[in-house]
C-alpha cells in the first residue's frame, strides 16, 4: 500500500483553510446524511461528510480535492466528535486524499490480475507524462497513485481517474483518455475495448446468448 502522510500543519495551511465552511448546498446535503442516523449517532455520518468536504475543497482548488487538517477539524466540529476519531477515518480509507492532488488523480491498479494484463505498461505510460507517486505534476493536472484491486479484474488493466473507471487499457488507449481529459473533454468511461459494452466476456458472450439483443424467457428451456 502506498505510504500516506498527512499534509503538515503549517500557518499557511491554517490561513488557507482555517475559515472553511460548507456551502449552503453542501450543508443541506450534510444535514441530510446526518438525518439518516438516529439521535446520538450523528458521528456515523463522518464518511459522507468527509467526502463532501473533499469535493468542496476540490471545487475550490479545481482538483479532485483533498482534506487539509482545518477542514477535518471543521467536520469534527460539525459532528461534535473528537478530531482524532475523524483523523482515524480519513487516514484509514485511501479515497480520502491527505495531501493536495492534481485536477486528475490517476489511480492505477497494480494488483495481480491487472499486472498480468499489462498494468506495468500503464504505469510506464503515466510516468512518461511526468506523474509520480505522491506528487502533483507541474501543470497541476495529474497526480498518480498505484492502488490495490478496484474490482475490475474482468476488464483489467484499469485506472480510476477521479470518479470514473477506465478499463481494458493499453498504453495507447490510456494516452487517448488522458489527452482527452487534458483537453477538457469527457472521454467515455468504462471499457475502452471497441465493441465491448461493460464487463461481458471478451470476444462475445458465451452464455445467455439470446439475451444479447432482447429479453428472452429461458424458462421453457429448463
Amino acid at each position: 500500500m502506498a505510504a500516506r502522510e498527512i499534509a503538515p500543519d503549517t500557518p499557511e495551511l491554517r490561513e488557507r483553510w482555517g475559515s472553511f465552511a460548507f456551502t449552503a448546498e453542501n450543508k443541506a446535503k450534510a444535514d441530510k446524511h446526518i438525518a439518516k442516523y438516529p439521535e446520538g449517532r450523528q458521528k456515523s455520518a463522518v464518511m459522507p461528510l468527509l467526502d463532501l468536504a473533499q469535493r468542496q475543497v476540490g471545487a475550490d482548488t479545481d482538483t479532485q480535492g483533498w482534506l487539509p487538517l482545518p477542514v477535518m477539524e471543521y467536520v469534527a466540529d460539525y459532528l461534535g466528535m473528537p478530531i482524532i476519531r475523524v483523523l482515524e477515518v480519513a487516514t484509514f480509507y485511501t479515497m480520502y486524499n491527505l495531501a493536495p492532488v492534481g485536477k486528475f488523480h490517476v489511480q492505477v491498479c497494480g494488483t495481480t490480475p491487472c499486472m498480468l494484463r499489462g498494468s506495468d505498461d500503464i504505469i510506464a505510460a503515466c510516468k512518461k507524462r511526468g506523474m509520480k507517486a505522491g506528487h502533483v505534476s507541474d501543470d497541476g493536472l495529474w497526480s498518480f497513485t498505484e492502488v490495490e484491486c478496484m474490482g475490475n479484474c474482468a476488464t483489467a488493466p484499469m485506472v480510476q481517474i477521479n470518479d470514473d473507471n477506465y478499463e481494458d487499457l493499453t498504453a495507447e488507449r490510456l494516452d487517448v483518455v488522458l489527452d482527452a481529459l487534458a483537453a477538457g473533454e469527457t472521454p467515455k468511461a468504462g471499457t475502452q475495448e471497441p465493441g465491448r459494452h461493460t464487463s461481458e466476456p471478451a470476444g462475445g458472450p458465451t452464455s445467455l446468448t439470446e439475451m444479447v439483443t432482447e429479453n428472452h424467457d429461458y424458462r421453457g428451456d429448463w
Binding site: M1, A3, R4, I6, D9, I84
Partner: peptide, 19 residues
C-alpha cells in the same frame, strides 16, 4: 479525553495523539 487514536491501517497503523 479522546486524544489517542490509531491512524492509517494494516501494517502502517500508528498510535498517536492528534498532531
Amino acid at each position: 479525553a479522546d486524544e489517542i487514536g490509531a491512524l492509517y491501517r494494516g501494517e502502517d497503523m500508528q498510535i498517536t495523539t492528534y498532531l
